[in-house]
Design a protein around this nucleic acid. Structure first.
Lengths: 186, 186
DNA sequence: GTCTATAAGCAGATAGAC
DNA sequence: GTCTATCTGCTTATAGAC
């Protein structure tokens, strides 16, 4: 088993699962190694600065996934409502129906906070912009669109936290399902 | 410096600050010791099972604070709107104006999750009940009151997460300020 | 690109003096 | 009730063989 290897994308997916389950501090090299099937040294080969590099790769991959699953759908073809519904399905997939914790929460605490703050902020800004644009296109005033774009993110993150703390992913799914009507209502 | 000591309440406040800043895994005995001014052994004297006992004490103290700052105000004297406004001020104080992270998030990840899940769930249930009762009293149908009580918690937690990730506590405060109108509207 | 072996330090935890 | 000293195991990280 010298050369062949899991594709990098699959490695990062497995790293992501560990960070989501254990948090940044809790994700030890032992767990990360076990989850990927790579020895510690192999991990350092791919991620020279160790855990910090892995976390960064996880964040960037998450950003890309969110781009594909949500942002592109918000900006895609179709009516605002159709695009919003498609984006909602994307969020549901991204968070595994509410079972996956949000990297936003996990990486805004402790040692990880400083490292990833700017990445978190830019991700939020980008999402807010895309939602606000869609809502403006749907006929809402610019001011209201801005306001509701924040409301959307707050609701999604909150639904995730409350759903996970209650051990009831349905909470997240219900919150998501009601989002389009709420955002688009006059 | 043999006998005299910080009162237990003050010790727990300082432990709380560390857990909130670092998360459960990140809160090392070294940090907890430094924050309280107590040596490791002293911490073990007060909290025999170590970190887990400290975290439990922190959770129970938070529960009590939330009882005083929010629950009692929701059930207190005055009109529903007045009580809701008082509770909102309590939430703001509890979360230090949005700067303090929520223990709910931190303790629903990794090793802490299993230990504290039931405590988290009961806290959420208790709060939801109190909010729903107030809203029913204000004239909302039982069904709508239930629904909005969940919406309240989702919004508060979400505002906290998004505000912290954006490094902008005003987000949390704005979300809080708009809560009474939103919950009480017909 | 992966492995084994190992280093150096910090984690949580305990014993026993004062 | 606090302290110093210590222990074991796990942490991140590196060196070097294959």
């Amino acid at each position: 088993m010298a050369h062949p290897q899991l594709p990098r994308e699959e490695v990062i997916d497995r790293l992501t699962a560990v960070f989501r389950r254990e948090g940044y501090e809790g994700a030890s090299l032992a767990l990360l190694s076990e989850a990927t099937g790579l020895g510690r040294s192999s991990l350092y080969h791919h991620f020279p600065r160790g855990k910090e590099d892995m976390a960064e790769a996880v964040m960037l991959a998450a950003r890309e996934k969110l781009t594909n699953l949500v942002l592109e759908r918000l900006a895609g073809p179709g009516s605002p409502r159709e695009r919003l519904s498609a984006a909602v399905r994307g969020w549901d997939e991204f968070y595994h129906g509410g079972e996956a914790s949000c990297l936003t929460e996990l990486f805004s605490v402790g040692a990880a906070r400083e490292s990833f703050q700017s990445l978190l902020l830019s991700g939020i800004t980008r999402l807010r912009g895309a939602i606000a644009e869609l809502l403006a296109e749907a006929g809402l005033s610019k001011e209201l669109a801005e306001k509701r774009s924040l409301d959307a993110l707050v609701t999604i993150q909150g639904g995730l936290v409350v759903g996970r703390a209650s051990n009831d992913p349905k909470i997240f799914q219900t919150v998501l399902a009601e989002l389009p009507d709420r955002l688009l209502s006059a």
